[in-house]
């Protein structure tokens, strides 16, 4: 039979606590990682790819809204054959701007910010112009981004 341990009970208790704590941390990690991954924002697979919009959807003088890399964007045909694409997210507080066909400008419905068709700030609180997105005409499609 082994000789009885000379360690005082308090030290044995500390050792057991550290052991239990370590094991608990290991188990918490094993359970926490799937939880973290489950709750993590969805991956933006293909998020950097260009978006195609049919040219026919963007008639002259009108605006066509679409999703661009997870955010709303808008394409315009200012002059026949001359296309522009902008982020539709107001630079003030993130609302989505609306196209005002009568005045030919964008209006943010939240705080009255106004933007030109090229995205420049005309009035209101927005601190910056709307983000301009690169557009390439590719046959009957517009390739944006």
């Amino acid at each position: 039979m082994d000789a009885p341990s000379n360690l005082p009970p308090s030290r044995r208790r500390t050792f057991l606590l550290i052991l239990a704590g370590g094991l608990g941390a290991l188990l918490a990690g094993a359970a926490g990682w799937p939880l973290l991954r489950f709750l993590a924002p969805a991956s933006r697979g293909g998020a950097e790819q260009a978006v195609s919009v049919p040219r026919a959807a963007v008639a002259a003088g009108t605006a066509h809204f679409f999703q661009y890399r997870g955010k709303p964007a808008v394409a315009l045909q200012l002059q026949p054959g001359e296309y522009t694409a902008l982020s539709a997210v107001c630079t003030h507080l993130g609302c989505v701007v609306q196209w005002q066909e009568a005045t030919g400008e964008f209006l943010c419905p939240c705080h009255g910010g106004r933007f030109s068709p090229a995205g420049a700030v005309l009035a209101g609180p927005p601190p910056r112009a709307l983000e301009i997105l690169p557009v390439v005409v590719d046959g009957d499609q517009l390739r944006i981004g």
């Binding site: 799937p34 939880l35 991954r37 489950f38 993590a40 969805a42």
Partner: peptide, 8 residues
Amino acid sequence: EVPFGWLV
């Protein structure tokens, strides 16, 4: 598709 969704 959801990460670890099968497990949950």
